[in-house]
């Protein structure tokens, strides 16, 4: 169980997947499984990393696969990572697609429901 690490709720017709804490080699696969099994098909999908304190390469892979999976369902996806945060800098460092990134959940929802 990932308990608080993964919560999924619907908001403005979108599924918002909120991740918390550390996503690393120890738990990334569980996180991926939980998200895929919990999130319903919706107009849009937001993966909110605001509450993530640590993200390593396994976490990056997890994000990769989630985005790929949702896209395969024809669901638009956005990833929320606050500017200036450690996670954002990691994503930047590795060259995460800037088009997929927003700084806040509101921005993401706004963009998806536009």
């Amino acid at each position: 169980m990932t308990d608080e690490r993964v919560t999924v709720r619907g908001e403005r017709g979108c599924e918002v997947v909120r991740l918390r804490g550390e996503i690393d080699h120890g738990n990334a696969e569980l996180v991926e499984r939980d998200v895929l099994s919990t999130a319903r098909t919706a107009a849009g999908m937001v993966i909110d990393l605001t509450g993530v304190t640590f993200l390593d390469s396994a976490g990056l892979r997890c994000l990769d696969r989630l985005v790929t999976a949702f896209r395969r369902r024809q669901t638009p996806v956005l990833v929320v990572a606050p500017d200036g945060g450690a996670v954002r800098s990691t994503l930047d460092l590795i060259g995460f697609l800037p088009d997929l990134l927003t700084g806040t959940l509101d921005d993401a929802l706004a963009e998806l429901t536009r």
Partner: peptide, 14 residues
């Protein structure tokens, strides 16, 4: 694989 390369890349860049 892409993700493995990513770990090394992270270390190298950090």
């Amino acid at each position: 694989t892409a993700h493995r390369g990513r770990g090394l890349a992270l270390m190298g860049r950090l």
